[in-house]
Structures are given as structure tokens and as C-alpha cells.
């Protein structure tokens, strides 16, 4: 196994970033086509402008609100349907095929339908995020609860834990935590995509709308400057969840 020490990796990566940005800046200056490849300095200037004008903060705020709302609804639906699928054969065979089909259908393909049915107010956008994020949560709840550890359930029973509800919260859900968190991590990644799709399909504000509006007028430096925080947002959310996930790794 070629695992290198962390500080060495970090050093190489820092050098790599420095080289990368320098090469970009120099070649973009020489190339001199800011429409195709704006220099790093121009992108940073654009980012600065977006920051001090407050446009970026406002857009990020809208996007995060959408993301949180979408993930919350997706978690609720995923939890309820996932529990049903895990505990009942009827529910499994009646619901699972639809969710499987939803999982492999690109969210983007569903967006025009959502637009027609729900409009593109906040509700419509939340629904897009939910469509993107619900399946990983549902599948993780279903498989986490299905693989409940029989031995731990017996232990809990022998120490007086009674009833399905109590067992669910005292044993099954806790044992399923690592799987649930993995599902949530996957869902969060897809939710960010759903959010961007919802915000980009029409120019509607949020960080996706911001990118779209600069793209429409070919301000490439501002497009880059707005994509950067969106990527960071996605990475930050996923990293946060995997941090939490690693803490859970008693298994």
C-alpha cells in the first residue's frame, strides 16, 4: 500500500496549487482571450466584487436555504418510506420499483415536469432537490433497518426494552447510524446538484441563477468566480458529513 505521510501529501498539494495557479495566470495573460480563459487575477477580482456587493452572500443564503429545506423534506420522506420498505414486504414490492427508477433517472429530465406541475417558486425548487436527494436516504434507511443486528436486539430485549417503537429508537436506528450517514452523504452530494439544476433551469436567483445570468452575458471571469463558492459549498457539506461519519466508526 502506497500511503504517503499526510504532511508530505499536503506539501505536494500546496506546491501543486501554486504551480497550477501561476501557469494559469501566465498563460491566460499571454493567451489574452478573457472570454475563453480569464486570468486568475481577474477571477479573484470578480469574486471580490461579488463579495463586497453582497450579491454572493445573498445568493449563497438562498441556495443554502433551498438545500436545507430540500434535504429536510427528503430525509422525512426517506425515513418514512424507508422504514416501511424495511419492515413490510408489501411496501417493499409496491414502492421499491418506483424509487429505483427515480434513482437512475437524471433529475434534470424531471425538472420541466416539476415546472409545469408546481411552478418554479420555492415549492417547485424544493421538490427538485427532494427528487435528487430522497432515494439514497430511503435506500440507506431501508438497508440499515433491514440488517438490524439480531444479537443486539436480543440483548436489548433481555434487559427489558419492550415494543417495536422502543426497539427502533434504542437499537435499530443506532445500529444503522453508519449506513444512514453514508446515505445522507450521498444524498447531500446529489442535493447540491438538484439545487443547481433547480436554480439554473430558469434564472431564479441563488448561486445557480447567479452563474446562469453571468453566463448569458459571457462574463466568464464572473462565471468562474461564482462556480468556485458553489463547488466549495458542495465539498464542505460532504466533508462535514464524512467527518461526522468517521466519528461513528465503532464498527
Amino acid at each position: 500500500m502506497k500511503r504517503r505521510p499526510n504532511h508530505e501529501v499536503r506539501r505536494d498539494q500546496l506546491i501543486g496549487v501554486a504551480v497550477f495557479l501561476t501557469v494559469w495566470e501566465v498563460s491566460a495573460q499571454a493567451f489574452d482571450k478573457p472570454l475563453l480563459l480569464p486570468p486568475v487575477s481577474a477571477i479573484l477580482a470578480a469574486l471580490w466584487e461579488l463579495l463586497i456587493s453582497g450579491a454572493l452572500i445573498k445568493a449563497l443564503g438562498e441556495s443554502i436555504l433551498l438545500l436545507v429545506a430540500g434535504l429536510a423534506v427528503a430525509s422525512l420522506i426517506g425515513f418514512i418510506c424507508g422504514t416501511l420498505i424495511a419492515r413490510s414486504k408489501t411496501a417493499y414490492w409496491m414502492l421499491n420499483p418506483y424509487f429505483s427508477a427515480l434513482f437512475v433517472t437524471p433529475t434534470i429530465a424531471l425538472v420541466p415536469l416539476v415546472l409545469v406541475w408546481f411552478g418554479f417558486g420555492f415549492t417547485g425548487r424544493v421538490i427538485v432537490v427532494v427528487l435528487a436527494a430522497v432515494v439514497p436516504i430511503l435506500f440507506s434507511v431501508a438497508s440499515g433497518l433491514r440488517d438490524s443486528p439480531d444479537d443486539l436486539i436480543e440483548v436489548a430485549r433481555s434487559f427489558g426494552v419492550k415494543g417495536e417503537i422502543q426497539l427502533l429508537f434504542q437499537v435499530r436506528l443506532r445500529a444503522a447510524m453508519p449506513v444512514l450517514m453514508a446515505g445522507l452523504r450521498l444524498a447531500a452530494g446529489r442535493a447540491v446538484v438538484g439545487m443547481a439544476v433547480a436554480e439554473t433551469y430558469l434564472r431564479l436567483g441563488g448561486i445557480g441563477g447567479l452563474i446562469k445570468s453571468y453566463g448569458a452575458v459571457f462574463q466568464t471571469d464572473f462565471v468562474f468566480a461564482a462556480i468556485l463558492p458553489l463547488s466549495l459549498l458542495g465539498i464542505a457539506i460532504v466533508t462535514l458529513i464524512s467527518r461526522f461519519e468517521r466519528r461513528l466508526h465503532w464498527t
Binding site: G16, V193, K212, S231, G234, I235
Partner: peptide
């Protein structure tokens, strides 16, 4: 290379469409 690949991979493609 990993950080760049990861960053590109986590960026929703719809927003890269203008580029």
C-alpha cells in the same frame, strides 16, 4: 491531482454549461 478532480467532480454540471 486529486483535489482538482474532486472539485470538478463535485461541481454540478449545469453550472459549468456556460463555460
Amino acid at each position: 491531482l486529486q483535489p482538482y478532480l474532486y472539485a470538478i467532480f463535485s461541481t454540478p454540471r449545469v453550472v459549468v454549461v456556460p463555460l
